[in-house]
Design a protein around this nucleic acid. Structure first.
Lengths: 136, 136
DNA sequence: ACAAATGAGACTAATGTAGTATCATATAAA
DNA sequence: TTTATATGATACTACATTAGTCTCATTTGT
């Protein structure tokens, strides 16, 4: 089981790249070349990031994307939530209709505890912190 | 995303039930009635638990299952590992061949940190602790 | 007008998960 | 010794999720 899915991973990498371009418009083509992410897929991700106000886009010739937010103010939890929804480690117990009578209540409580610890950790990791000590 | 999959959940509940039966042989039919788990599925789970030395079985008429271990010595992490494998939150980055050069290394480190915090929490929850304060 | 870019969304393929079905084997009890 | 009742092993099907592709519309600088 992965904590981050592929969309989230790609998105994080795209955001990191854009953060290095400051306010410059950057086309999906450039991002694709840098990151090696299949283009149609990358574009879909960029569109989602746009809808979520992480970045802005300009259409047309010479168009592209710019980060709207400072990468020191974008947290991993933000990106995860956008692409994977709110972290919910214990949804199955009720959603999938497993009777809660015997183990679910105490079990659910424990799992919820772990969940909130994970959420809080994700909420402390900024995208900017992922570039510390990087070459490029 | 769920932390526990359905197999794990069923397994936990079956273990709890068996722990209340002490050393008595209990057939999958009885467990099914108590827990409402589809039988063929339940049997598959019991077989896996047997292979992993959590319980023992007796074949034939009047046969059934008994817990081999004290439920105070069975941890959630044990059950999770049996049914879901070792918790590995960051496998995707390499397994799925996403280039680690840009974000993966620092990102991976962070995720690994969260992962080990989750593992350690799962390693502290005993099955017995899930029955505290329960009626039946 | 044309080329280069994003917007929107339908579509396909691969994978994983949940759950079922079947038959073999072992054993208690009549 | 036959029968009913169990588990053992394993193949199979159906469904959901995820990954990734494709097509066409729209916008805009030159």
């Amino acid at each position: 089981m992965d904590l981050l899915n592929r969309d989230t991973d790609y998105a994080v990498r795209a955001i990191i790249f854009l953060s290095k371009r400051k306010g410059d418009l950057t086309s999906s083509l450039e991002i694709e070349k840098e990151l090696g992410i299949p283009r149609p897929f990358l574009r879909k991700i960029l569109q989602v990031l746009k809808k979520n106000k992480i970045l802005e886009s300009v259409k047309g010739n010479k168009g592209g994307f710019v980060l709207l937010k400072d990468s020191r103010k974008i947290f991993l939890s933000n990106v995860v939530e956008i692409f994977q929804g709110k972290i919910d480690f214990a949804q199955c117990l009720f959603k999938k209709k497993i009777c809660p009578a015997i183990s679910s209540c105490p079990l659910r409580k424990k799992i919820k505890g772990i969940e909130s610890s994970v959420s809080s950790q994700l909420g402390k990791i900024t995208i900017a912190s992922l570039t510390k000590g990087q070459k490029r």
